[in-house]
Design a protein around this nucleic acid. Structure first.
Lengths: 332, 332
DNA sequence: CCCGAGAGTGGAAGCGCTCTCACTCCCCAC
DNA sequence: GTGGGGAGTGAGAGCGCTTCCACTCTCGGG
C-alpha cells in the first residue's frame, strides 16, 4: 500500500503539502494540487484511515444502535426503513454507518464497550425500552447521539425525534367509536416501550372520553405471531368485542388471522385498526385502517440532529415530534 | 481518555509490559498483570483502536457486502438470516461486522473504495450477479473473503459456500411430475444470478428427463410482487399449466395470490412448489412444498472460510457445497 | 524603496499503540 | 562454581497521518 510519503515524493512536494492537497486543499497552489492528484492517481493511493483517525480523533463512522433481539430487527419493517433512511442521509456526508444489534442485557456490555472504545464518532439509537439505560450511558459518555423514538429513561438528556403516539392511537380508536363499536379491545405493544405505553394510553383516552369500558387489554410484542396469540386470548376473555385497536400493523396481521379462524368477519363482526402503515397494512385482507407512523421524517430528523452535534453546531439536547396521520382503508 | 502510558505509570510498569498484560498476557508476571488490570479498572482504560490498528495492521472488523438494492435486502429473509448467522459466528471471535449495502453500478465505486481503504480485515460477500465483478476485485486486492453463494464471475479465484440449486430445483420439480402434472411452468429468479440460472436449469432437466415441454418460463426478480406479476403473465401465455415451480418462496407467495385471484385452486388445479423454506413457506395458503436452502450451513461455512484466511491457515480458494433438502407440504 | 500582509511551503512533533531487541535476573545442569 | 537458558522487563523505534510553526517569496501601499 502506498503511503502519503511516496505520494509526496512522486509529486515533488512535502508530505505536509500533499496532505493539504488531499484534504480540503486550501493554501495549496494549483500546480502542487495537480501534481499531488496525479501522484495519487498513478500510485492508487488511499489514506490509511487508522493513521488519519489517530491524529484527527475522528473515525468518520457512526453506529446505528438497535438494542433488540435480531429476530425482531429483521422481521419488523420499522427497523429496515429507519436503517435505510439513516444510512442514506449519513452516506451523503461520507459517514459510514455501522449496524449494532444487541439484545439488551446479554450483549449490552459488549455494545457499550464498542461505543466507549472510540470506534465511532456518534450514534443513532433506536430504543425505548424501559430497562435499557442507553440514553443515560450515551449522555454520560458525552457521545454525540440522536434517538429515533423517545427513550423511556433519560429522555431529557439526549436529542430525539419522535411521533405523537398518544394522539395517533386516540384518533384511530375514535374511528372505531364513530363507526358504532361499543366494546373495543386493544392489543398493546410491549409495556416497557414508550411507543407501546403511549398507544395504550391514547386508546384508553378515546374510550374514556366516549364513556366506554377500557378493560379488554392484552399485551403483545410487536410481532405477527404475538398479535395472533394475543387476539386469541382476547377473544377468549372478551368474546363480545366488536372493535379492536392493535398497536402495530404487524400484530394486526396476526390478529386478522386469529379472527378469521374464529369465524369473525372484519369489519362487520369486529372492526380492526392498526398502527404504522409501513406497507403490510395495504396487503392484509381486508386492508387495514391505520395510522401513518412518520418514520421517514423521524429518521431524517435524527440524522440531522446527529450531524448538528458532530459539526459542533449545537450541544444542547433537542427534541422534534412529528404528527401521525390517519389512513382509512376497509378494516374499519 | 486515559492512555496506555497512564495505565503503565499507575501500575508501576513500562508501557511495553502494560501492553503485553492487556493483550495475550504471556511473558508477564502475575504480579505485573494484576497491577495492570487494577490500573485499567480504576482509570476505565480502553485501548485506542486507531492507534492499535495503525501498528498491528488489523482492524478487527469485517464487512458483510451485499450488492443489492436495499429494498430487496430487507424484504428478503435470505439476507437477514445470513447476516444474523455470520454476525454471530464472527462476534464470537471479537470481530465487528460492518454491513455494506450498495446497489451495483451506482454506489459500487464507493464500496470498492471502502474495501480497498483498509477499513476492514476481510469480507463476507453475498453476491452472484453476472455483472458485478466483486470476486475479481476482491481477488485482485488480495482481501481475505468468502462468498455466500457461488459468484457468477471469478468463482475459481475465491472461497465460497453454496448449495446445489440445480439438484434442488430438479428434485422439487420431480414432485410435480410425480403427482401427475403434465404442463409445468416456472417463475425463475433473475437470469443474471447464479442461483436463478441454476434453478431454471434444474427445472428444465427434470422436464426433459420426463419428456415434458419446458417452455412455460417467466423471469421473476425474487420479490413477492414480482412473483405475482410473473404468474399473471404465465397464466396469460400458458393458461393450461397444472404445475408451477417458483424459484423462491417469496415469489411463490405472490404467485399464490395471482392464482387465487384467477380462481385456480392450489394444488388441485395448479400444484405449486417453491424454494428456500425460510419461514414464509409455512405461512402461505396453502403451505408450500419447497426445498430447504441451507443458508445456515452456508453462512456458517463462509464465516469459517473467512476465519481460516484471516488466521493465515490457508490462502488457496476453497468451495463447499451443501445439499438441499425437499420439504413436503400441501401446495403440491 | 521599504515594510507588512498574505499565500504557499516544509520541517518536525506527536497522536497511542505494538513489538523488537537488549538487558537483567534466577535457576538448573554440569 | 560456572555457564547456559528461559522468564520477565523496559527502552525505543516506528506505524501513516495531520497540523503547528517557522520560513520564504510576492505584492501592494505608504
Amino acid at each position: 500500500m502506498p503511503t502519503l510519503d511516496e505520494v509526496a515524493r512522486l509529486a515533488g512536494v512535502s508530505r505536509a503539502t500533499a496532505s493539504r492537497a488531499i484534504n480540503g486543499g486550501s493554501r495549496v497552489s494549483a500546480k502542487a494540487a495537480e501534481a499531488v492528484a496525479e501522484a495519487v492517481r498513478t500510485l492508487g493511493y488511499t489514506p490509511n484511515p487508522a493513521a488519519r483517525s489517530l491524529v484527527t480523533r475522528r473515525t468518520d463512522s457512526v453506529a446505528m444502535v438497535i438494542p433488540e433481539a435480531d429476530e425482531r430487527v429483521f422481521a419488523d419493517p420499522f427497523f429496515a426503513r429507519t436503517l435505510r433512511i439513516v444510512t442514506r442521509a449519513l452516506s451523503a456526508r461520507d459517514l459510514q454507518v455501522v449496524l449494532l444489534i444487541a439484545r439488551p442485557g446479554e450483549e449490552e456490555e459488549r455494545m457499550l464497550r464498542y461505543l466507549r472504545g472510540g470506534h465511532i464518532d456518534g450514534a443513532i439509537v433506536v430504543s425505548s425500552h424501559r430497562s435499557d439505560l442507553l440514553a443515560d450511558h450515551v449522555a454520560d459518555l458525552g457521545l454525540p447521539a440522536a434517538f429515533v423514538g423517545r427513550p423511556w429513561t433519560g429522555a431529557h438528556r439526549v436529542s430525539y425525534a419522535d411521533t405523537d403516539n398518544f394522539a395517533g392511537a386516540r384518533e384511530v380508536t375514535q374511528v372505531l367509536i364513530d363507526r358504532g363499536c361499543r366494546r373495543i379491545g386493544t392489543i398493546t405493544g410491549p409495556a416497557d416501550m414508550s411507543a407501546g405505553a403511549d398507544r395504550v394510553a391514547g386508546w384508553r383516552a378515546a374510550l374514556d372520553a366516549a364513556g366506554l369500558a377500557a378493560d379488554a387489554v392484552v399485551e403483545g410484542d410487536f410481532t405477527e405471531d404475538g398479535g395472533e396469540a394475543a387476539c386469541e386470548i382476547l377473544l377468549g376473555s372478551h368474546p363480545d368485542i366488536d372493535g379492536l385497536m392493535v398497536a402495530s400493523d404487524l400484530m394486526a396481521a396476526g390478529a386478522l388471522r386469529a379472527l378469521d379462524r374464529a369465524g369473525r368477519r372484519v369489519p362487520d363482526d369486529v372492526a380492526v385498526v392498526g398502527y404504522d402503515d409501513l406497507g403490510i397494512a395495504e396487503r392484509t385482507t381486508p386492508p387495514l385502517t391505520t395510522v401513518k407512523n412518520p418514520i421517514g421524517d423521524m429518521a431524517e430528523e435524527a440524522a440531522r440532529l446527529l450531524l448538528a452535534q458532530l459539526d459542533g453546531t449545537t450541544t444542547i439536547p433537542r427534541r422534534v415530534v412529528f404528527e401521525p396521520e390517519l389512513v382509512r382503508r376497509t378494516s374499519a
